[in-house]
Design a protein around this nucleic acid. Structure first.
Length: 833
RNA sequence: GCCCCUGUGGCGGAAUGGUAGACGCUGCAGACUUAAAAUCUGUUGUCCGCAAGGACAUGCCGGUUCGAGUCCGGCCAGGGGCACCA
């Protein structure tokens, strides 16, 4: 039986993560260890940023992974002498708070702040080196006041406007959605089918920046290719021409957009989108009934039904012709839903010979197919499908025999000269719809007045506060409309009767500038101080999920450009380097409530401690790849941290961190080898971190070092200088990943000051190479023998040694050595014939 | 259809053109223990062989090279983005 005294001694001596973690978290907090003085410009700056969380109430492993990665980077940079800014905040407006309000009768603010309190506790338990004085909350007045300011900033520059348009409506969320929030015709949030509604809504003119958003992409060298490609696809620039086709017998011209003006002599009909205003205007009396029917039918289709590519083409003629301005030919005008009103001009010239869709349509409705580009593979043969390549023009009047590229130019030039067309660049990107018919968001600071029209709320009246006297359950309109005190206000311009805009902003507006507020979070007179932004922006390393590849990352780029253009920021790109971390899986499957395979961070903290969680989540996969959470592997990490503890504390009597390291030349045997291990580890880890933060290999190198240390027998009697150096090195290298354990051992070994303000160890270049190396002997590239040798021997000597190896002699036999390749310290390859 | 990424043991994954499988997880065998836990040691790609050793192995087929997981060309498979975008 052990006595209680023995037990307590045992407890102190063994690794107790929970005890040391809360102890150090408190100590760091009290000593303001992680506060950032943003006015200190002596040290180089480093801005490490995680995508801030939505306060759902509980941290999930995706958060743990995201914030651990950023935290390790921040700590690593701090130990490298950077003045590091590593903030945290809350993307705290949004629909779930409102749903909770309806379901549980809790005010959205209360629900949100309760969640924040719990999640902040969890983040602190994770041991993040975050400056909590800079915490921002997008749902708090001191933040959304400036989101409103941003809206007005855009409004005053013509970049925020209201228009009536067919917009995406989600029946479940009871609000409109931005194009970026509709995925395959479904709502990004709840997967329900999105319908079109014609509504008057606020938009941000992101299309004004389409070219710049695209042109800057190659400059973002620190971004993953994947994300750049996604943004490029989303913006989708096409260069071509706009050409006007006059309507026969009417004084109307229909503009069309085409990327293939070289095929314009092959136009055999023209098509309008069903929503095109000219449909109503141009339809003949005979065709009116069938056209009306067709348009009506289209309206009832969902976006998914309409845009299915495998669907058979449908359409109706309008009973009127248009004239091709190039050759005077008259061709019939049709309406069909394969033409989209939102893209180009909502009208297309149809060239069935050289466009697949037109070919299909023309075949079905027996419309003429006229070839104007020669297919070199089948010259003169009838087309059985559209030939969509470029080539040499035929049947094209004066442009015949030109190649497509030249023809495009000349044909466009002619239109320009004659005034019926021009060069045009078209983007797929649409303006960003920012109105939401929801309560829990930033109110749009606009007042409508019958006399003055749309009036911005003056800056001094900001913030426009969210009212509390609202009915959350109201359908189809913003709950803000149910507050009469909110809604009815005097016009700021004339003092007459006015009424407030009752929609709130898309929460993506809130998150489009939060990284600027962190730099100057308490500024009461401006959203931020421009000179501080100049120093701190761009963000040096942004870390977050791939799901924001388009949405948040493009919106933020747009905001930055808009702010830059009036001198508010020096740079026009917010994020210099971007790391998109992979998902956290559990035994190969995505963690989800429905599968019941969620691993709760709190349980892990309780059972193993935060250091194990941090260590494990970095260990098994590189940060960009998906990560599989395996219980047995967590256990392995926990055991390793115990091993670190034992390895260091067991050798305490041999450790003196102040002891100078003897000259390398004087080291011998095991201790010389240990010193080499320490130095190789330092160099290897720095390389791993600098090449895209490969923390998984950082961890394997730490394990190798500890494995060697665990077997190392310190010199008896006096403190061991080389071992002390190894311990000091190990703890510093471990500090960013397992900050609590490293701090505790550092203090126990007599370290001065926090380990987290120590300078990162540097390697001794002399000690990187082991004293003996194994030379591989290859014959014709195949390994035939190996032998140990002192490192650094010259090539000739290695070759001579290799030639004398019995195995080599035996293997070569009668054959002649025709060539020898020697890689010093590595291999000798004998080429024989 | 267009564009991007990824293919390596039972698993996660390592490999500046130079010993493929580091480091782990799992499994197996053993030591310590009355026993268990913890810890430690060995072993763990496949096939042939008692062994020494040998052959085959990085999705497939070619090429460059003294030497290819790595570079080049062509396929195949998986994942992702865009898509009746004119």
């Amino acid at each position: 039986m052990e006595t209680s005294t023995e037990k307590s001694i045992l407890q102190i001596e063994s690794y107790q993560p929970q005890a040391i973690e809360s102890k150090w978290q408190q100590a760091w907090d009290e000593s303001d260890l992680y506060k950032t003085d943003t006015s200190d410009t002596h040290r180089p700056k480093y801005y490490a940023l995680s995508m801030f969380p939505y306060p759902s109430g509980r941290l999930h492993m995706g958060h743990v992974r995201n914030y651990t990665i950023t935290d390790v980077i921040a700590r690593f940079k701090r130990m490298h002498g950077f003045n590091v800014l590593h903030p945290m905040g809350w993307d705290s407006f949004g629909l779930p708070a409102e749903n909770a309000a309806i379901q549980n009768k809790i005010p959205p603010a209360e629900w949100t702040f309760n969640n924040i309190d719990n999640m902040r506790r969890q983040l602190k338990q994770l041991g993040l080196a975050v400056d909590w004085d800079r915490e921002v909350f997008t749902c708090r007045e001191d933040y959304y006041k400036w989101t409103q300011w941003m809206f007005l900033y855009l409004f005053q520059r013509g970049l925020a406007y209201k228009k009536e348009a067919p917009v995406n409506w989600c029946e479940v969320c009871q609000t409109v959605l931005a194009n970026e929030q509709v995925i395959d015709g479904r709502c990004w949030r709840d997967d329900s089918i999105v319908t079109k509604k014609k509504l008057s809504q606020w938009f941000f003119k992101i299309t004004d920046f389409a070219d710049r958003l695209l042109a800057n992409l190659p400059k973002l060298k620190g971004w993953p290719d994947r994300v750049l490609t996604m943004q490029r696809n989303w913006i989708n620039r096409s260069a071509g021409a706009e050409v006007e086709f006059p309507v026969e017998g009417r004084n109307i011209k229909i503009p069309i957009f085409t990327t293939r003006p070289d095929t314009i002599f092959g136009v055999t009909y023209m098509v309008l989108a069903p929503e095109h205003p000219f449909v109503e205007l141009l339809v003949s009396e005979e065709q009116r009934e069938s056209v009306d029917q067709y348009v009506e039918l289209t309206k009832r289709k969902t976006e998914i039904e309409r845009t299915a590519t495998d669907k058979e083409k449908t359409g109706v003629p309008l009973g009127i012709n248009v004239i091709n301005p190039y050759n005077g030919e008259t061709v019939s005008l049709w309406v069909s839903d394969y033409v989209l009103m939102e893209y180009g001009t909502g009208a297309v010239m149809a060239v069935p010979a050289h466009d697949e869709r037109d070919f299909e349509f023309a075949t079905k409705f027996r419309l003429p197919i006229k070839r104007v580009i020669e297919n070199p593979a089948t010259p003169g043969l009838p087309l059985d499908q559209a030939y969509t390549e470029t080539g040499v023009l035929v049947n094209s009047g004066e442009f015949t025999k030109l190649d497509s590229e030249t023809a495009k130019q000349k044909i466009t030039e002619l239109a320009q000269k004659k005034g019926f067309g021009r060069e045009k660049v078209q983007y797929r990107l649409r303006d960003w719809l920012v109105s939401r018919q929801r309560y829990w968001g930033t109110p749009i600071p606009i007042i409508y007045c019958d006399k003055c029209g749309t009036v911005p709320v003056p800056d001094e009246d900001l913030p426009v506060r969210l009212p509390k006297d609202v009915d959350f359950g109201v359908q189809g309109t913003s709950p803000l409309a149910t507050s009469t005190s909110f809604r009815n206000v005097p016009c700021p311009k004339c003092g007459g009767v006015g009424r407030r805009e009752t929609d709130t902003m898309d929460t993506f507006v809130d998150s489009s500038w939060y990284f600027l507020r962190y730099i100057d979070p308490h500024n009461a007179t401006k959203p931020f101080e421009p000179s501080d932004i100049h120093h701190w922006m761009p963000v040096d390393q942004y870390v977050g999920g791939i799901e924001h590849a388009i949405l948040h990352l493009m919106y933020s780029r747009f905001f930055m450009m808009a702010l830059h253009d009036s001198g508010w920021t020096e740079t026009d790109e917010p994020f210099k380097n971007l790391l998109t971390q992979g998902m956290v899986l559990k035994d190969g499957a995505k963690m989800s409530k429905s599968k019941g395979n969620i691993v709760d961070p709190d349980e892990i903290f309780k059972e193993y401690g935060a250091d194990t969680a941090r260590f494990f989540i970095l260990s098994d996969s590189p940060p960009q790849a998906d990560f599989d959470w395996k219980e047995s592997a967590v256990e392995g990490c926990y055991k390793f941290l115990h091993k670190v503890w034992r390895t260091v504390t067991d050798r305490k009597t041999s450790i003196n961190l102040d002891l100078p390291v003897p000259a390398y030349e004087e080291m011998t045997g095991e201790s010389r080898e240990l010193y080499q291990w320490s130095n190789r580890t330092i160099q290897g880890i720095v390389n791993d971190i600098e090449s895209e933060f490969q923390f998984n290999t950082v961890i394997s190198k730490l394990r190798e070092l500890v494995n060697f240390m665990a077997k190392y027998e310190p010199a008896a009697g006096a403190p061991d200088a080389v071992l002390s150096h190894a311990v000091s090195t190990l703890l510093k290298l471990l500090a960013p990943i397992a900050p609590h354990l490293a701090e505790e051992l550092w203090q126990q070994m007599g370290g001065v000051g926090s380990i987290h303000v120590q300078t990162w160890p540097t390697h001794n270049p002399m000690a990187l190479q082991a004293d003996t190396v194994e030379i591989v002997v290859q014959i014709n590239g195949k390994v035939r023998d190996k032998f140990p040798v002192a490192s650094g021997l010259p090539k000739e000597e290695l070759e001579a040694m290799a030639r004398q190896r019995p195995k080599v002699i035996q293997n070569i036999g009668e054959q002649q050595i025709v060539k020898v390749i020697v890689v010093p310290d590595k291999l000798v390859n004998l080429v024989v014939k």
